[in-house]
Computed example of a mutant assay.
Amino acid sequence: MSGRQTVAETLIDYLRSQGLLPPPKVTALTGGVSGETFLVETAPSRLVVKRALGRLLVAGEWTAKPERAMTEASALELLHSITPEHTPALCHADPSRHTLVMTAAPADWPTWKSVILASAPSELTARIPETAGELGTVLGTWHSRTWHDADIAARFNDYEALEQLRVTPFHRRVAVQHPGVAARITACAQELVTRRDCLVHGDFSPKNVLVGPNGPMVLDFEVAHFGAAVLDLAFLQCHLILKALHIPERKDQLADAAQRFLASYERECPEPVEKLGAHTACLLLARVDGLSPAGYLDTATRDAVRRLALGLLADDDPSISEVWNRTLEAAR
């Protein structure tokens, strides 16, 4: 590619040099490990610029192909067309730079993770179960609208990011560390890489949800693929369980949130999802012994999560109700 500027770029530079265009305010956004993300503000516009990294920002050696950015662009386009109020709009995608530009939520929309972990109660804290129900509706809509759709399956048939960002650092890593339950973990991993249910988000967690007065907005689609619906369900269940053990005084509220999430999901997508309890247990173990442990857990809570996960994986296909019963027992 030529290094010369386009006419438009030259004109923009000239207008800025004359003080006729305000310089944008650029703020680095934190919280993720897979890319560089910036908020770019030039009133009245608010945009997010995201570049996928080949080596993730964690202590261990964790690499993934940066071309996954274009998968995220495709997922954004599709899911924004289905639920425009609950996803950012894609503005631009540059495959040569592995970079996306998308609309940003209002500045006062916090992440759902920060709401759940907040020490001081707030209106948003009180609405945690309602937000979970809304997320179940959003996810159920995505899954039902893409269920067994051959055209969408053909668009999202690259499974390398799933292996690099989920199965290898989560399942395969903890299977080696815990040989007593390795067969159960490997069976769950095999299901994730072979099932073809619907378009799966792949990172459906509170850190990737912003909450505002009009409901939640879901972010971060770089692990999107046509795969096993159970991954998205187990991912959110896992994070709610981790937080119930981390904040035991909110355990009942978080259990209510988990139940409302599943009930709302099932109303939108009544297709059967099997082994949710086992998949959730695998992810719990991964978040203490995998390549990306949950940073807010202390040693005692990590030990409790590990005991819970290993006990569940030693059983024969525990239900998600049993998973939560044992979680509430452990959180006392």
Rank of each mutant, 00 (worst) to 15 (best):
T71G: 09
E266H: 14
A255P: 07
R260S: 04
A278P: 02
L291S: 15
A132W: 01
P213E: 12
A73N: 01
L236C: 02
A281D: 00
T111A: 09
L117S: 08
G60N: 12
C238I: 01
P66Y: 02
A286P: 01
T103H: 02
D220V: 02
A257I: 04
K207H: 09
T280N: 04
V26P: 08
Q259F: 09
P270A: 09
S45R: 14
T27E: 15
E72F: 04
T146M: 06
A330S: 11
G140F: 01
M1S: 15
R196L: 12
P293K: 06
V218P: 04
L53A: 09
A229P: 02
A294I: 10
W109D: 05
R68D: 03
L53Y: 02
L165T: 08
Q164A: 13
P206T: 09
R172S: 12
A309Q: 00
G136P: 00
E61P: 06
L165E: 02
V305G: 04
H80K: 04
L78R: 05
M217K: 11
Y159Q: 14
K243G: 01
E9H: 06
I241G: 04
E271V: 13
R306Q: 07
D256M: 14
S292F: 04
L11C: 14
C269Y: 09
S45G: 13
P22H: 11
F38C: 03
V323C: 12
G32D: 00
I152N: 05
